[in-house]
């Protein structure tokens, strides 16, 4: 399989509103791909089209070598996992009963329940009724539900948005482990640190258009000013361009004992997003 996801000229129109306007991208098998954008940029619409919840107005969509017309089949559905803003749990049932239902629906062995509860750090909540759980705990159960059948490709819409930093870090480590085991991950997030840490490549989506696409490192390099910021002991900040002719200047500064610190000038993904789209990523 050459591509886990291949999208060509995708367009989605709701009445007079164009939610997605001619976007194209691909996701390689085993990749963690991040779709970043502010609220209303079209991230959730894209996920819904890729999972078959919505039909596209134009363009070609292929997921796991399956065309959009076959997204409704049981075979396709059992190969993907979804955690979206539409995901929810049966509040009157226990965590175990919720996961047991989806184990049976996906034909997964029941011992996956305890494995997943361990993964999302919720073993102690196994017999708790879902309505008694905090928002963060529910989010972790939803993540366990999305991964219970060991899908080849997982769509995660803001998976750590309701979590405290400790649990968010735990989930991120879990996702990295999952990815190392071969699972392809398609993620949307507002958290730029998370995107930088997790994603092999990211796409910036704004007003339904992809405005930038690449690896976080490549994007940071592309939007860097290619200069060093040198802090001296007398409180001065010198900006020296990263050019061969400036090598002597930097060496002389170090040799004179004036240099307190040297910083490279790589912007964060958040800063790049602001520069590209003129919008904060909230």
């Amino acid at each position: 399989m050459e591509h886990a996801i291949k999208v060509t000229g995708l367009r989605k129109v709701f009445g007079n509103h164009t939610a997605i306007e001619d976007i194209s991208f691909d996701v390689k098998p085993g990749e963690i791909f991040g779709l970043l954008g502010p609220s209303g940029s079209g991230k959730t619409t894209t996920i819904k089209i890729l999972t078959g919840e919505l039909g596209q107005s134009a363009g070609e969509v292929s997921v796991l070598d399956t065309n959009a017309g076959s997204f409704g089949t049981a075979d396709f559905k059992s190969r993907i996992g979804i955690l979206s803003d539409n995901s929810s749990l049966y509040e009157r049932l226990t965590v175990y009963d919720n996961l047991k239902l989806f184990c049976k629906l996906y034909d997964a062995p029941l011992d996956r329940i305890d494995v997943m509860l361990e993964e999302v750090n919720l073993k102690e909540a196994r017999s708790k009724v879902v309505s008694k759980l905090s928002k963060g705990m529910k989010q972790r159960v939803l993540l366990a539900k999305a991964l219970i059948h060991q899908p080849e490709l997982v769509f995660l819409d803001e998976p750590t948005s309701a979590l405290d930093p400790g649990n968010a870090a735990h989930i991120q480590r879990g996702l990295q482990k999952l990815n190392e085991a071969g699972t392809t991950i398609f993620i949307t997030t507002h958290d730029m640190e998370e995107a930088t840490e997790l994603c092999d490549r990211v796409a910036f989506l704004n007003n339904g258009k992809i405005q930038e696409l690449g690896s976080p490192d490549a994007l940071r390099y592309k939007y860097s000013t290619h200069a060093f910021h040198v802090e001296t002991f007398n409180g001065e900040w010198l900006v020296i361009e990263n050019k061969t002719e400036n090598a002597d200047k930097i060496r002389d500064l170090i040799a004179s004992g004036q240099v307190k610190a040297i910083h490279s000038d790589n912007p964060t993904l958040g800063q790049i997003f602001l520069k590209v789209t003129g919008k904060e990523l909230v």
Partner: peptide, 14 residues
């Protein structure tokens, strides 16, 4: 109302 039906419909269950 609780959006659980969509979860069932997105599962392999018909």
């Amino acid at each position: 109302e609780k959006k659980t039906l969509r979860g069932l419909m997105m599962s392999p269950a018909s």
